[in-house]
Write a protein that binds this DNA or RNA. Structure first.
Lengths: 341, 341
DNA sequence: TTGTATGCGTTATCAT
DNA sequence: ATGATAACGCATACAA
């Protein structure tokens, strides 16, 4: 099955390649007769433009790159879902890479995408990354670029975020409102901004409610896993048997906590109330159903793509583009795990 | 930041483009001296080959396409995960599209990928698809092509599968071995091969155990959702209060069943034992923990890519390639939801 | 309305 | 060891 080219159509029709090209792209300066002839033949021969050649000519590939820490996390699957759908609607395809939370991999992947000459990049940082060289490289090269969720504050690029601090404050306040007096926080790793912000939100809310801050009530995940939730739940109960509330950095961790509590007959929410973060699907099918902070993953994906699209269009027209930061709203979702009163 | 080209290097060094190209690709017929000069300058200028031009010349893009029904399903996330990692290790990038179980979308996406001239396509069919035109088109064009999990039997291409019939037989037998006498089956939609095979497996096993087959015990999902599990659980209990076992086509549906049973004080497994299919992460964190059939999603992804790679290599060398079918093993995972005795 | 010429950046063949 | 030339397929400025 040989590929049909403009040349082939031109030859069989006895006209020039230029005319064929113009006819196919509906240029006004082609006679109706030749246009039809070209269109018909093109259809017959199943002509489709060779995208490699088009890419080379137009210097764009109608492809964007997406780098995220983990495809398999519910939050990110959701974002991917939104981005590829939105991209497709706008004529773009999406190449997906995952950093597995490793800055080394992430660097290579940025390089891959740059070499591939994607038209833009959307990215959520690995836990190890900050405003590192590879990020600067993207910005220096003026490649349209949007970061979402796990971002670097210092980077001068478009961002799509939630207000993690505020959301964490709501979550902590929610537990306090439910009567919790001694609240543990299972936080994310030390480096990523959103783990930091959630921790700050927790701490600020204690202050605000005149609850003394006790650093031994803060447990730090390395990998933010179910297992860590399980282990920390055990530790919390052993070290602070009087804890009556747990705020976990993520639903997955909160689910680990619930699982441990369930297995050890620790009543949730009667003895300990639990709240997670992100509103994963899973959290509503557990017993007890997990209270959580709803993070609008789908909207984040849609917004990220649209910001990128704006920047790509500006870039193409060679007009300046001022990065924008979008902060989306979050809500507390109260379910059984914190329904005390 | 202008892109460095071979021409630029050639000009500043006062040599020809050809020589530069050769030097960079370690051809033997370049003097050590010029080679070094070229390599040094290339490094200085951060030269990277323009992939658009390379694509056009070599007629390959080092990119593959992946079409799946739903990014957000745990099973598919897992496969995606495996494929993009494996692809990256072998120098390929992956464009992902989701059909949302719609044959119309799927057709468009196949077209997109063909026009994009990806080097190969990996695909899992939508519930509406069979051996349709767009699938034939891929095969006719001799584009390297692998189907996994949801396949069309008729397509003459490589496939990576499990033996759904056999797996369903084990699952049903497992319930029978646990003492179930009246087993309901919540099956998948009527069209997809794996839903059919699981249903057949269920039926065959009843026969084998001299349990009369009762069609009213078979419930058919349209969309294979949590909600359907919930609804069918209700229906099962109402229509057949003496049912003592449920085999669900997928963990998600089984989780819906468990959720309904939990809320209505129907004891699992004492009154009704439940088994799912696919071993989603979620299924081990529920109460009771869900028994299921382990489906090796990660291996399926790895195997699919490697079959595709084989075919892409053969294709490049212009040597014939005989499609292969790989059938991977499954295991019953017994957890609380079926641990009767 | 149609066609000519040129270039996008690389690779490959064939001379020198 | 080096280079001139053509080709990949398309798009566009410019001529006719």
């Amino acid at each position: 099955m040989k590929e049909t080219t403009l040349k082939e159509i031109a030859n069989t029709l006895g006209i020039s390649i230029t005319t064929v090209s113009k006819a196919l792209k509906n240029y006004p300066d082609v006679s109706e007769k030749t246009r039809q002839a070209v269109l018909d033949l093109a259809k017959d021969l199943h002509y489709t433009p060779n995208s490699f050649a088009v890419n080379l000519r137009t210097k764009e590939s109608k492809t964007i790159g997406l780098i995220i820490p983990e495809v398999m996390h519910h939050f990110f699957s959701n974002v991917i879902n939104a981005i590829i759908d939105e991209a497709e609607k706008n004529g773009y395809l999406v190449i997906i890479l995952q950093s597995n939370e490793s800055i080394e991999l992430e660097k290579k992947q940025v390089e891959l995408l740059i070499n591939k000459r994607v038209d833009g990049i959307i990215m959520s940082l690995s836990n190890e990354s900050n405003f590192d060289e590879h990020i600067k490289e993207i910005i220096n090269r003026k490649i349209p670029f949007v970061m979402f969720d796990k971002i670097s504050k210092l980077a001068n690029c478009s961002k799509v975020l939630i207000d993690d601090q505020k959301a964490a404050m709501s979550a902590t306040q929610h537990l306090i409102d439910k009567g919790c007096k001694k609240i543990a926080h299972i936080r994310g790793p030390l480096n990523p901004q959103n783990a930091i912000d959630r921790y700050i939100g927790y701490k600020k809310t204690l202050d605000k409610n005149q609850i003394p801050y006790d650093p031994t009530l803060v447990y730090t995940c390395e990998n933010v896993t179910f297992q860590e939730g399980l282990d920390f739940a055990k530790q919390i109960i052993e070290e602070h048997p009087d804890v009556d509330g747990v705020f976990a950095v993520t639903d997955l961790v909160a689910v680990g906590v619930l699982s441990y509590f369930n297995d050890h007959k620790i009543k949730v929410p009667q003895q300990v109330a639990v709240i997670g973060f992100s509103n994963w699907f899973m959290s509503q099918v557990l017993t007890p159903k997990l209270s959580t902070v709803d993070q609008p993953s789908h909207e984040m994906g849609v917004a990220s793509f649209h910001l990128l699209l704006e920047e790509m269009n500006a870039h193409k027209e060679n007009i300046a583009f001022a990065p924008k930061t979008l902060i989306l709203e979050t809500n507390i979702i109260e379910r059984d795990s914190s329904r005390k009163s």
